[in-house]
Amino acid sequence: MSSEPEPGTLRPGGRTARVRAAVLAAAGDVLAEQGFAELDLADIARRAEVGKTTVYRRWSSPTGLVTDLLAEMAEESLPRTATGSLRGDLAANARLVQRTLTDPRQGPLFRAVIAAATCDERTAQALGQFYEVRVSEWAPAVQEAVERGELPAGTDAAEVVRAVSAPLYYRMLTTGAAPTEADADRAVAAAVAAAEAGVYVS
């Protein structure tokens, strides 16, 4: 079995880091503007003002670019907001998701990646890893609520976090409209009520 890393998984520094930043920014622009089908390595190299050989050698394919882009987005996403209450923490998470999906660049970008993930295994794996990072970032909010006695022992923290964001993505994907702040608040209220009732006790 080869020990070579997957294309786009190395974490460079210095000038190489600047090349990576330029290429991933260009890839994000294309995803947001035109979708995954138009993600062409030669075009990305031109947009980023980077040699084609560099892009092909480092990322090798559009899915390599998407994998690295999602990894960067997970690394740069805002840290968890700790408010001291379960409802406050989950509301901060829901509003963050809502703002991301409403953003004129991030919203279309996520729609493009989600669409690509339905028919491309590597993109699906990269998207799954992105959300695994995000869920693990916010899971302590639920764990701390259990410790404070706000939720029953054995509550599955990851499932509660997913229950907050899932309705927001569902609304975007099924209606084509970005979720509103009211949608975010309803998702939090429903998740908290279910968690308090023991629905997510494993």
Rank of each mutant, 00 (worst) to 15 (best):
A194C: 11
L70I: 03
G8K: 01
G13M: 15
L173K: 03
C119K: 14
T102Y: 10
R11M: 12
A22C: 13
G88Q: 08
A177G: 01
V23Q: 09
R111K: 07
D68W: 13
A91P: 07
A27L: 07
V23C: 03
A74L: 00
C119V: 15
L90A: 06
T81G: 10
P179G: 03
V142R: 03
E33M: 06
G14D: 15
G64D: 02
R99T: 07
A26I: 02
G28T: 01
L96M: 13
A124W: 00
A115R: 09
L78I: 07
P152E: 07
A117D: 05
L10C: 10
P167K: 11
R20W: 04
V201W: 09
E181L: 08
A124Y: 07
A22E: 11
V142Q: 06
R105P: 02
A124M: 10
Y56C: 08
P179Q: 05
G88C: 09
A187M: 04
V55H: 06
V192F: 10
L10D: 15
W138G: 13
A22V: 02
P79V: 11
E76F: 11
D120K: 02
T180P: 06
T16G: 13
L90P: 03
R18T: 12
Q129A: 15
V192H: 07
L109Y: 12
R15L: 15
T16M: 14
T67F: 04
V30Y: 02
I44Y: 08
E33S: 11
G88V: 08
G149R: 06
L41C: 03
A27G: 11
Y131V: 03
A117W: 06
S77M: 10
A141D: 11
V55D: 02
R148A: 07
A187Q: 05
P108C: 03
E147T: 13
I114D: 08
A92D: 06
L39Y: 08
T83E: 08
N93F: 15
V66E: 08
V160L: 06
T54D: 07
T102V: 04
T174E: 07
V30S: 01
L151M: 08
V50F: 04
D29F: 11
A184H: 01
A112V: 01
D120T: 08
Y131I: 05
A163R: 02
A139L: 15
V97N: 06
E72S: 12
D29W: 03
T53V: 06
R57E: 13
R57Q: 09
E49W: 08
D185T: 04
Y170W: 10
K52D: 13
A178R: 00
L10N: 13
I44C: 07
G88A: 05
A116G: 05
G14A: 14
Q125L: 12
R162K: 13
T63L: 01
E181V: 00
M73N: 12
A117L: 12
G88F: 10
V192P: 05
L109D: 09
A193P: 02
A193F: 05
V50L: 05
Q125M: 13
E121G: 10
P7N: 12
T100R: 12
L168T: 03
D29K: 11
F130V: 12
T54N: 06
A37G: 08
Q129D: 14
A116H: 02
Q129R: 15
S2E: 12
A116I: 02
T123P: 08
P167C: 01
S60R: 15
A92V: 01
A25S: 15
T155W: 04
R58C: 09
L10E: 15
V23H: 00
A190T: 11
D68E: 14
